[in-house]
Write a protein that binds this DNA or RNA. Structure first.
Lengths: 233, 233
DNA sequence: AGAAACCAAAAAGTCAGACTTATATGTCAC
DNA sequence: GTGACATATAAGTCTGACTTTTTGGTTTCT
């Protein structure tokens, strides 16, 4: 998943990125390129490339005579897939999970509504296929199989919406769903009501009923919010 | 606005970024670092830093023995503020404007609902202030003054939602609104109904009425969709 | 004493050149 | 045609010297 070990500068990022997003260097901390280069045992050129990438993510700012300063979280490019991965993998995981779930609750219903209007027959077929796969794996601790279809389902919805920015959230949603299964509490079989909702969404999209698709998806995301205690019961 | 001229590599990006996002290099095009360095009259080290940044935006991929290849639009990090700016400034502007407006229509209503629950008294005050400023500038071709308050209004809503990912969309929304005033057709005074809606949203947030704040904001964004002919009348 | 001008050190920024490594592609034998 | 092998290519890496900006302290003048 993603882009592992693409060169030396990538290795550096794999260490520095998670460290910064985890808050190991509080905002305002100052790093020096040469020192970092020594610490990671790479040349300054490689280190500079890594710093440039962090800078383009607004994780740090590089200024002459002062050094590379860590920026406050409010400056971070929180939509950068790399940043999201780093945060999901580290100490910032709960916060990232919450904000992503709220984002999902806003985006996915609208995406489903658009999908009902724009989905191709192939996408409709794939959607029902996914929903059926979820049903088939909804009992008997077949969490892995369930997850695969769940991820595929939401990815198709986002793609079929026809909006490039929605489509780009597919990977993020996938990581959220996968995380819920693997890290969070998810011992029992999935909620039967949720499974039913997915089937109904697939049907609504196929029927071109945007209103219904949106409303049903809203119910799904409300469920996700409840799981994280973001909504009062 | 943003980060102009932060070093030589930034200058290179200011040319290459817009060129790529405008589609001047079709997907699959191959660039060579050395050739680019010559073309921009910079050292290879500087050029490499620029390429690294483009790579972190998934605009290009760098592979040994082949070169720097331009990636298809579906790979781009379309949430990167820099990418958004480049696209809004170039040939891809209409597409970017549409997808951003659809994103707004999904996010802002939910953000307004959350703002109604979480906004501080100061934020509520600022919000009504903005709304009043919009009213005051809604007649007599005072578009500039209107725009300032409109931008501030939406920024407060997104910030007050308490969700970091929503808050980060403030800059983007600002650029969309500014673009609508400056580039798009916007000769007459703003729609009075829209002005009223903003005032009502401010009131709903102050009253803590999440449901109403969300619904009213939805009406605002529906208006924005209509402006771009995304919704049927 | 306070402000203005000045100086020196520090760290990022830039450049040039040599070298390494992976890999796409063409060549040859079978 | 298939597989092994050689070769050329372009990215990747390292090093060292040099430039530029900026900060913080020092000196000087009012």
């Amino acid at each position: 998943m993603s882009t592992p070990g693409r060169g030396l500068h990538g290795r550096v990022l794999d260490t520095l990125g998670p460290a910064i997003t985890a808050g190991e260097y509080p905002p305002g901390s100052v790093l020096r390129t040469d020192e970092l280069a020594q610490r990671f045992d790479v040349s300054r050129s490689v280190m500079r490339e890594a710093v440039r990438v962090l800078e383009s993510m607004s994780l740090v700012a590089s200024r002459r005579r002062v050094g590379v300063t860590v920026l406050p979280r409010t400056e971070w490019n929180v939509y950068d897939p790399q940043v999201i991965r780093w945060r999901l993998a580290g100490a910032d995981r709960p916060r990232q999970l919450r904000s992503l779930t709220v984002l999902r609750s806003a985006v996915e219903p609208v995406a489903a509504g658009l999908a009902a209007q724009h989905a191709t027959p192939e996408q409709c077929a794939e959607l029902t296929e996914c929903a059926l796969g979820m049903v088939a794996n909804s009992r008997g601790h077949r969490l892995q199989g369930y997850l695969v279809h769940d991820i595929a389902f939401h990815r198709v919805i986002l793609t079929a919406s026809g909006n490039e920015m929605f489509a780009r959230l597919g990977d993020v949603v996938a990581e959220v769903l996968a995380g819920r299964t693997h890290h969070e509490v998810m011992f029992e079989d999935p909620d039967p009501a949720a499974v039913t909702l997915h089937v109904q969404v697939a049907e609504a999209v196929r029927a071109g009923d945007a209103e219904r698709a949106e409303q049903l998806t809203r119910e799904i995301t409300v469920g996700a919010l409840h799981e994280l205690d973001i909504l009062a019961p």
